[in-house]
Design a protein around this nucleic acid. Structure first.
Lengths: 164, 164
DNA sequence: TGCTCTAATATGTATATACAACATAATCGG
DNA sequence: CCGATTATGTTGTATATACATATTAGAGCA
C-alpha cells in the first residue's frame, strides 16, 4: 500500500515524508508526556470516583488539605506548594469559595489575601478522609509497591528541580 | 497558636476535629493523586513549551501520531488507544479538524467515522518531531534514567489493568 | 420481522489547566 | 522621594478532561 505523499518533492522538508511514519512509531513507543498524562488521568479518575459521593474532586481536596495544614495562607502560597499556576489557582479557589469551603480576608499587605477553611470545608475534609484512604489503597494495588515508590521519587525529582 | 475550632464539641463528627489535621498531614506526605497530577502538569508544560512554536500541544501531537500510525481510524479507537474518554476525544478532534489537521469521512457503518491526517497535519508532525525529541531529552534529564524507566513501567501497569 | 440491547458519536455542563495581559501594591536603587 | 522592577491577584482566551444524557445505527434474538 504505497503512500501517495511519499514521493512529493515539493514539500519544504528536505527529508522524505515517511520520516513522519518513523517518528510517530518512536512517539508511540517512547513518548513520556503521553504516559505521564495517562497516569495522571487514570489516577485522578480513581480518586474522583471515590470522592464523588461527598462532592469534592481530587484537586479540590488537595487544596483543602494545604489550607487546613498551613492556613491562613495566601492563594499564591497554595499555588507554590502545589506547583499550580496562580491563575489556575485563582479559578479553583473561586469555585471553592462559592461552595462555602473557604473564606478570604485581606492579608498583611493590601495586595495579599488570607485563606481559611470554613466549618463546611472542614467537614468535607473529614468526610473525604476515609474515601481518600480507599483510593490510595486502590491506586497502590494497581501500581504495586514499586510503582508507588516510583511516584514518590518522580514527584521528589520534580520538586527538587523547581527549587533550582 | 491555638486552633479556635479544636475545642468545638458541637460538630456532627463523633471524632475530635483534629482528626482533620492528622489526615491532611498524611495527604501532604502520601497522596498519590497529588503527585501524579504534579508529574503530569510538569511534563506537559515541558512539551507544550517546546511545541508552542509550531502551534500544537502535547495532547494534540499524541493524537496526530496515532492517526498517522493507525489511520484511517475511528475517533473511538483513538480514544481507546490513548485511554481518553470518548466525549473528550470528540472535543479534541473537533479542534483539530477545525485547524485542518484531520479530515473525517463516513466509515463502513454509517455511525462510525474514519479519520485521516491532512497534508497540513502531516507537516505539523514533521515540524514537531525535533521539538518533541528535545522535550524528551529535557524530561529525561529531569527524571533521570530510573525515573524515565519508572514512567514506562507505570504506564504499562495501567494499560495492563484496563485490559482486565 | 420487530424488539431490545449495545456501540459510536455528539452535546450540556462542570472542573482543571496555562499563557497573556492587566491592575495594583510593595520594594529596591539611586 | 521617585522611578523601575517585582510580587499578588484577576480576567480573557484556549485547551483538556469527564460525567450524564441524547441520538442514531447496528446486532442479536424471539
Amino acid at each position: 500500500m504505497p503512500n501517495p505523499q511519499a514521493k512529493s518533492r515539493l514539500t519544504k522538508m528536505t527529508k522524505p515524508t515517511n520520516r513522519a511514519e518513523e517518528a510517530v512509531a518512536d512517539m508511540g513507543e517512547q513518548c513520556l508526556v503521553k504516559r505521564s498524562r495517562l497516569i495522571g488521568r487514570t489516577i485522578t479518575g480513581i480518586y474522583d470516583d471515590a470522592l464523588r459521593k461527598v462532592g469534592v474532586t481530587a484537586g479540590q481536596l488537595n487544596i483543602l488539605a494545604v489550607v487546613v495544614r498551613r492556613g491562613p495562607i495566601s492563594p499564591g502560597e497554595v499555588a507554590r506548594y502545589l506547583h499550580i499556576e496562580r491563575s489556575t489557582m485563582s479559578r479553583n479557589l473561586e469555585r471553592m469559595k462559592r461552595n462555602g469551603w473557604l473564606t478570604v480576608c485581606p492579608g498583611e499587605s493590601a495586595r495579599s489575601q488570607e485563606l481559611r477553611i470554613t466549618e463546611s470545608g472542614r467537614s468535607i475534609v473529614l468526610e473525604a478522609v476515609p474515601l481518600w484512604r480507599e483510593a490510595q489503597s486502590r491506586t497502590r494495588e494497581i501500581l504495586g509497591a514499586g510503582g508507588t515508590e516510583a511516584i514518590y521519587r518522580l514527584a521528589d525529582a520534580i520538586e527538587e528541580r523547581s527549587v533550582v
